[in-house]
Simulated scan of single mutants.
Amino acid sequence: MAWTKYQLMLAAMMLTTGSINTLSAKWADNFSAPGCHDSPSHTFSHPFLQAVGMFLGELSCLVVFYIMLCHDRRSPEPKINQGQSFNPLLFLPPALCDMTATSIMYVALNMTSASSFQMLRGAVIIFTGLLSVAFLGRRLVASQWIGILITILGLVVVGLADFVSGKRDDTHKLSDVITGDLLIIMAQIIAAVQMVLEEKFVYKHDVHPLRAVGTEGFFGFVILSILLIPMFYIPVGGFSNNPRQVLEDALDAFCQIGHQPMIVLALLGNTVSIAFFNFAGISVTKEISATTRMVLDSLRTVVIWAVSLAVGWEQFHGLQVLGFIILLLGAALYNGLHRPLLAKLPCWTQGEEDSGEREGLLSAGRGSVNEAS
């Protein structure tokens, strides 16, 4: 079936804004500028402030939801289903997970390449699958277990590629690259917990996706903004790149922005793109399919990788190609993208396998609604 112009626009928006989200965050990290009190020029290393900007983008989805709701109520036949009434505090636990995972990932992005950052986020499949079995009572079918094993293999290959490139490149120290990769994997465990919490406590209330994203964005923005105050006084030694070597120096960030206004453009790109990416992702799932959303999400990894190579942020490594292909295969199997091909075989019978993969697709479509970066 041919796509309509609106569906093509949504797919292009999701691919473009999803790519811009990671690339703009990495672009901000690559800037160097003096800080406060005429401190020497140093890189813009402010992951927690960047995370606040990302949650501001998610919060804007709540504004969009209420604008759409007001417009819908004025129409003769309202179409928006608000779902059941719910306690907004239900979103607090998943929002705390989102806040923690996002902050860790922005720290990791300072240490490793944008392409590896995007590829390693595929690890969320492993932990989401295992946690859904343990806490949601879900039964994974054979293809999903195979997908998880293949994803693990892909992560090993990407990690090996980073290990080899870390010895050759001057952009990142080998120790930083390894630490960054491990932090990304750790963040995916927390992101998987977030998805399980949403599945168990939030989605049974049939909350509108934009409202869900916006509510979590509200909690993340408020809590992390408040936490910037104690972070200003917590020393972390050599772990931090800011002159005062504290967990987060927001004042230093604003001083750097004053010396290098282009940083604002990178931060705005991150904030605005996450809002449009969430809207486009939700709309693609609704208007086309969750399968298409998974494919587009994989394609943005290719775009991020291509742009990073083109602007000289990283060098080409064949192992990364192999790792990406393996990760893509693992994600395809886990999300049931092979099912339409198998359905054409005369010996194929739709049964438990078909049901399990459809469940996996739905889970993937819901779980990636508030994906960060």
Rank of each mutant, 00 (worst) to 15 (best):
L49I: 11
L69C: 01
I148H: 01
E353P: 00
M294A: 13
R300I: 02
L227F: 13
I20P: 00
V295L: 12
G323P: 09
D249L: 05
T292S: 12
N21V: 01
F91H: 12
G318K: 06
V156I: 15
L362I: 11
D249N: 08
V196E: 05
F44N: 05
A253G: 05
G166L: 06
P34C: 08
H317C: 05
Q260P: 00
V321W: 08
W3G: 10
V141L: 11
V158E: 03
T292Y: 10
V158S: 11
I257P: 03
S32M: 14
E352Y: 06
I304K: 03
E359L: 14
A310W: 13
K26T: 00
N241Q: 14
L299N: 01
K200E: 03
E248H: 07
E198W: 05
I184N: 03
L62K: 09
A364G: 15
Y203F: 14
W27A: 04
S115N: 00
M99L: 15
T285C: 13
H46M: 07
M9V: 09
F135A: 10
P78D: 09
G318V: 10
V264H: 03
L59S: 06
P94T: 02
V222Y: 03
I190G: 01
F232P: 00
L247H: 01
G53L: 11
D38M: 09
V284E: 01
F86L: 00
P76M: 06
Q320F: 15
S116I: 14
F91D: 06
H317I: 09
W348N: 12
F117T: 00
N110C: 10
R74F: 11
I189Q: 10
S298V: 11
L23C: 07
H338R: 00
P243R: 10
G318E: 13
M99F: 06
P93E: 10
V369P: 00
G238V: 12
F324E: 02
N21K: 09
I190M: 09
Q188M: 15
Q7I: 03
N81K: 14
H172W: 14
R300V: 06
G360W: 08
L131C: 07
F86R: 08
D170W: 09
A280F: 00
Q256C: 06
A275W: 07
R358K: 15
R211Q: 13
H208E: 13
P78K: 13
V222Q: 01
G57N: 01
L182D: 07
Q256G: 04
T16N: 04
A28Q: 08
I190F: 04
K204I: 07
H42N: 07
R339F: 05
G129M: 10
F277C: 08
L197N: 02
P47Y: 12
G83F: 04
D297Y: 04
E216W: 01
C97L: 08
F254D: 00
K173S: 15
L49D: 02
G137N: 03
T22F: 04
M13R: 06
S225L: 05
A331N: 11
E199N: 12
D162M: 05
V236R: 04
V246K: 10
I190E: 03
F48V: 11
L10S: 00
L299H: 03
H208Q: 12
L59T: 08
S363D: 11
D206T: 10
P88I: 13
G220V: 10
